[in-house]
Design a protein around this nucleic acid. Structure first.
Lengths: 189, 189
DNA sequence: CCATTTGCCTAAAGATGTTAGGTAAATGCA
DNA sequence: TGCATTTACCTAACATCTTTAGGCAAATGG
């Protein structure tokens, strides 16, 4: 019998694709096995268990997203960088809803510390270089930016903005403008 | 044999408690049945299915939270109302993490329209009365407030703020102050 | 070219979700 | 009070998913 050529990477990738198609919480070892036309038990040579699969998808998505953010931030500063940063997150979530959901998976501390999550935090701080904030304001601002962007995406994906006629894209740029103004006001004060 | 006295309400309540203890996604029909020392199939007289249970927990939590928000907003306006509003959400999430997670469940449109979610939206708008914003800025602001608060709570619960020494409570009030300043600046402009 | 490793398999058991149909308790009406 | 009906919970059964144990055949390498 011909072998399927499974590897942990291919399974992870397939899991990410499946997540985008049916939702991250619908990602199941069985579904991946079906996709490769292979028996479920065969996956356990490449994955510790179901949780392991989900963790790998999360790490994959964090990495991919961090790469996009880094590319978008290159050569930008100030409001320009802020808007680019925001748009990368939003676009990624729209393009890859399942992967974006995966990035919210709670990782255990060591895994999180070794993940691309660290780069995300660094890049968020990098944006604030354009605004010259001292600690602890810088940390407050990092948390605020993360909250707004994640919260907006999360609510938008959940359909929370569906019952008002105002175009979400307009709200998005209004919010980015507002954050820029806010950060500038903190700089000058 | 003595009957257990199951009702849809008791099952929903038990589900909410279970959610707070083990997480909303760990809430299972089987676990509820164990809690009442009853066979799983017995619950199907009171619940359509597992999804129905989760929806009911979500509606219950939305209702409970809306009540708290309404109570907190009574007699307050401006920044005072804004801070009270924010704190109710954060406190509720800390006190009832499973129920808070339940409020994020995606509901189908009709269910959502008939839920306390509508009241939440109205109360958010009510806060903005203190800032005198015209449309569409008001909608933008509603979305921004929802995003910040939900995003912050969500990131904090996920442990996203654990690797920096700055006290999350300070960031929280810094953010509330910033939002107040921002809304006031929009009012005057 | 044979020994070893590796990849996928069968088999089995446990947990959850769901439906169908039965029995006994509660309820209500004469 | 006594009987008919409704209601509440049960047993049985099946589908799906997760996970472990052990087997056979294909790939690999000296």
């Amino acid at each position: 019998m011909v072998r399927a050529g499974l590897t942990t990477e291919r399974l992870t990738r397939a899991g990410a694709e499946l997540a985008d198609e049916v939702g991250f919480d619908q990602v199941t070892v069985s579904a991946i096995a079906r996709r490769f036309d292979v028996k479920v038990a065969s996956l356990y040579s490449h994955l510790k268990n179901s949780q392991d699969l989900k963790t790998r998808i999360a790490l994959f998505a964090l990495e991919e997203l961090a790469g996009r953010v880094a590319a978008a931030l290159a050569g930008r500063a100030g409001k320009d960088a802020l808007a680019a940063f925001a748009n990368v997150y939003r676009d990624y979530a729209r393009e890859h809803p399942g992967r974006y959901a995966a990035t919210q998976l709670r990782l255990d501390p060591e895994t999180a510390a070794a993940s691309a999550g660290v780069r995300h935090a660094q890049m968020t701080r990098a944006i604030l270089r354009g605004y010259d904030l001292a600690e602890p304001d810088q940390t407050h601002a990092v948390r605020m930016l993360g909250s707004v962007f994640h919260g907006y995406i999360s609510l938008e994906m959940a359909g929370g903005f569906d019952h008002t006629a105002v175009d979400p894209r307009e709200s998005w740029s209004w919010i980015v403008d507002s954050l820029d103004a806010l950060l500038r006001s903190w700089t000058t004060s």
